[in-house]
Each structure stands twice: as C-alpha cells, then as structure tokens.
Design a binder for these strands. Structure first.
Lengths: 195, 195
DNA sequence: CTAAAAAAATGAACTAGATTAAGAAATAAG
DNA sequence: CTTATTTCTTAATCTAGTTCATTTTTTTAG
C-alpha cells in the first residue's frame, strides 16, 4: 500500500498526531509518479498543490527574459516543494518545478489544506511552524547572498547539504548559488588543488 | 489612551476579530518609545518580542567579520520587525534592529504569542498567513538578488517602496540592495542625468 | 545659529566574476 | 554496446561593481 509514514513523521516533528488526525491528513493526499525532466509546476499555470518528495529529487527555478535560469530551491526525500507564491496566493506560477530524477511524490491540494486547517488546529499550527521556519531559512539565504563571496557560498552550502551537492547537476547548483557554472567549476578546481 | 486600532486593523486584514478576540490580543501588547539610533535587538541577546511599528522607522541588519553591514529589512508604520530566526527559535540573535528615527512601537512577547495561538485558533491562523506571506516575499527577494543587476534592483525597489527610499539613509538602502553606497550614488546620478 | 559629525558624491585604480568559445568527459537511451 | 546529447572544464577577454582616498553636502545637537 501507500507509504504515508514518512510524511506523517515529518508532521509529527512539529505537532503530535493521533490516529484520527493521521487519517484526516492522509485522506487528502494524492500520490503521483513523475519522470525525470517532467514538470509538476509550470509558469502561468496556478500551482494547485504542495508536493512532498517520497523518492527522487526536484528543483524549482525561474527563467528570466534573457533565458538564464535561477534555481530557487532543491528538494530531495522528506522535503516539500512548490511555487510557494503561486500556491498561497493561488495566482499563476512564475517558476518551473522539475524532476531531476524519476520520482514519487505525495501531493496535497490548496483547498483541502485550507479546509483541514479550519477544522483541525493541529494542522493550522503545523503549517504555521513550517512557514515560519521557511521564512527564517529564506532570510538566512538572503544574508548569505548579500554577505558572502561565491566561493564562501559554495563552501557553506557544501557543508550544509553535501547530499544535494552530490546529487544535482552542477549548472543547477551554480544557478542556486548565484554564479555561472564556469565559475563554480573554477572554484571547485581551486579548492581541490589547494588541499 | 493607547492606540491599538492600527495593529488590530492589520490583523483583521487576515482574520475577522470580535471584541473578545481584540481584548485578548491587546492584553499582551507592551508599548515602548524608542529613540533614534537605539537598538531594540542586538546580537547574542535573544529576540524576545515581535515589534509592530506604530510611528517611526527601523532597519534590521547583520554585521559580518569585516565590519560590513547588510540590511535585512526595513520597517515603517504598520510593519512588523524582529530578528525572526532568533524570535521563533528563541536562540541568540545575529542581527541588530535599530531605530532610524524616534519611534513608538507595540511589542508582543514570544511566550504570550504562543499561548494566544494555542487558545485562539484565529491567531494561529493569522500568524500562519503572515509567515506564509513573509516567506513568499523573501523568496521573491532571493530571486531578485539572483537575477537582476544592481541598477534593476534599485529601480524595482524604488517602484515598490518609494516612501522607504525617501526615508532611509542611502548607505542602509545600498546595503539592503546588495551594493556599495558609492555604486548606488553612481546609479542615481546615471538615472537622474539620463531623463 | 553654529561647530562637529554623519552622510553623500566623485573619480581613479582594481578585481571578482561573467562571457564566449571550444574541447573533453560523462550520461542516457535506443 | 554505441552514438547522440548533456554536462563539465579550460582559458582568454571583458565588465559590473568594489575599493580607496578626497571633497562636498547634509544633518544633528548643543
């Protein structure tokens, strides 16, 4: 059967759930398989779901007028991903969310989540805590972008998310860190030869 | 007496409040006057409160090892400000929050807010919606930092927050936009002479 | 009103990182 | 396997933005 243990454990890191809560939550989950290079969100189409990654890897990114893309977020197992701005305001997306590997996801629809939150304060609380944590995280990223050099940003990310560094293409990582793939290549060489 | 109308109106943009809700909320508000250049948050001291600006202007900023400061956020009337990471995790702050003008603020303590949220789902919901909006905003800022040139970032900010541009010192704005004050000066001259 | 301090402007020299282009290596998918 | 495609590397050139040093302007607080 479907494995909802991981996503429930994720929630239980923030709020305790009894069997009834669990049933309520799992009843709104939709499971989906996604092939590598497939999009689960695309610009101009409203992002209707939050996506929990059960297996696989994703990235969300923005493509600007010049065709250059900027990675907003990566997500591997046990992470949520979406075009959050599109999702919470239910307006057309500006991002792509693309599978970097064949993947299995568990999705929850905006309307279902809002209903759930209205009916069960535990979930309202869960989504508050997650949003607050996400905001604090995003602020740290702003700080890192403002204050650090390209090399320092790479080293910091590598220290914090070694599994992501190994798993995603270098051009995607470069675009997350705000530099060109060529420059990231140069940094890696510099770091490798130095030690 | 104290004027709580503005802060209550702010909340009511997200959730409806009856008189009892209003009383519950205002009972935990602490009012404070702050002089220009005074800090309401400092590194290494835990940020115990969220601050609502009734009158005045603030900025939060980080000072790195080289003594260079990076502005994270501005706040004028009707905005909230804090070291959010310190506040929600109740860990020592890494930011300064400084008054740019003499100010009057209304503060709510972390513990009081958590109690309020547990007892009244309307406030849980309010803080969820605010956190989600803040997160979406922070993501847009990351995007803007990654994708745009210094001049584009300035023009964008100026279009979105003209009142802040006029009100805060240029060095603070430069440090928010991720450039040196000298370069911002150059951009402004370029834009002024071009038109 | 005025002296002192803070903020902004200017310009010359410099550099981190981008751009371009081409070849090498890795990976995917028949 | 094997070939087509995608990804990564390398190196030369270029530029947006920084640094540093000085001057001018604005603000502040007695």
């Amino acid at each position: 059967m479907d494995n909802f243990d991981d996503i429930l454990d994720n929630i239980k890191r923030y709020v305790p759930l009894n069997k009834k809560d669990e049933a309520e939550f799992t009843s709104i989950i939709q499971v989906k398989k996604v092939k590598r290079k497939e999009f689960i969100v695309e610009p101009d189409r409203t992002c209707t779901h939050q996506t929990y990654v059960l297996k696989g890897a994703f990235r969300s990114y923005f493509v600007n007028e010049d065709g250059i893309d900027h990675t907003i977020q990566f997500a591997i197992e046990d992470w949520f991903i979406s075009d959050f701005n599109s999702y919470i305001n239910q307006v057309p997306a500006s991002l792509y969310v693309e599978a970097l590997e064949d993947a299995v996801v568990q999705q929850i629809a905006f309307g279902d989540v809002e209903d759930l939150c209205q009916n069960n304060p535990k979930f309202e609380r869960f989504f508050r805590l997650v949003a607050q944590k996400s905001f604090a995280f995003a602020q740290r990223r702003v700080l890192s972008n403002l204050g650090k050099s390209a090399q320092e940003r790479y080293i910091e990310f590598q220290g914090q998310y070694p599994s992501i560094v190994q798993r995603v293409p270098q051009y995607a990582l470069a675009s997350y860190l705000g530099m060109t793939p060529e420059f990231l290549s140069k940094i890696r060489k510099r770091l490798a030869t130095k030690s």
